[in-house]
Amino acid sequence: MTEGIGLRERKKIQTRRRLLAEATKLFTERGFDQVSVAEIAEAADVSKMTVFNYFDSKEDLVFAPMEEHIGDVARAVRDRAPGESAASAVRRQFLDSVESRDPAVGVSDSPLALGLLKLIKQTPALLTRAHWYFVRAFDQLTDALVEEGEEPVIARIVAAQLIGTRNALITENHRRLLAGETADAIAADAVELAGRGFDLLEKGLGGYATRDDASPRMAS
């Protein structure tokens, strides 16, 4: 992933990864509130100022890997093909993520992903921050639907159903991960559950928010 970029940029990527790895190790060993930024810096062999050059806060050391996924659902809806409904686009994106064992949908049992999940569940401040990510994803999806011409209140209703279905599936994946099941075992069932969940959703929406070939606006 670092091929084709300069040495300076590669070093920055390596430093960022080292900070995330050391922070996660310390957090999972001792708890989020018991670890200071100075201790993370020492473990990563950098200065405290360097940590803040890469991350705005200690919480960002937990959530940085998730930041890039906030817009996943909105992007899937914006980029969907003509004739594809919003629900179908969200279903497709979710299933692709399951297939790739993406931690963002709760189907990775790597030590890092599992450690972060346990840490968030055990730390009230981090649970609050996780909810904020949910709200941002919802807002971005709502904006994507409004951009297609839907009135805001209806866009929020549709977005709530799409995000709610996806989050229910992810919550079940998390539950099973924390119970000690493997990602492969969870993924097999996640595909079947997603099929049932999105089938119900699409029946309720009735093909709503299907992109027309000639226009990005909603189908009636």
Rank of each mutant, 00 (worst) to 15 (best):
L7C: 07
E9L: 08
R10C: 04
R10L: 07
L26W: 08
F27S: 00
G31S: 02
F32V: 00
V35G: 07
S36T: 14
I40S: 05
I40K: 08
A43K: 07
N53T: 12
F55W: 04
D60S: 10
F63E: 01
F63S: 01
I70R: 11
I70G: 00
G71P: 13
A74F: 06
G83S: 04
E84Y: 05
A86S: 07
A89W: 04
A89P: 08
D96A: 10
S97W: 03
V98E: 00
E99K: 14
R101D: 05
R101Y: 15
A104C: 04
D109W: 08
D109I: 02
S110T: 10
S110W: 01
A113Y: 11
G115K: 00
G115E: 02
K118W: 13
L119D: 00
A125Q: 04
L127G: 13
H131C: 08
Y133K: 07
V135F: 11
R136I: 11
R136P: 02
A137N: 07
D139N: 12
Q140N: 05
L141K: 02
L141M: 11
D143S: 11
L145P: 07
E147N: 13
E150T: 05
I157G: 09
V158E: 13
L162G: 02
G164D: 01
N173V: 12
N173I: 09
R175G: 14
L177S: 04
L178I: 01
A183S: 12
A188I: 15
D189S: 08
L193Q: 12
G195Q: 12
G197V: 10
G197R: 03
G197K: 01
F198Q: 06
D199P: 03
L200I: 15
L201A: 03
K203Q: 10
G204T: 13
L205M: 05
G206T: 06
G207F: 09
Y208T: 11
M218F: 08
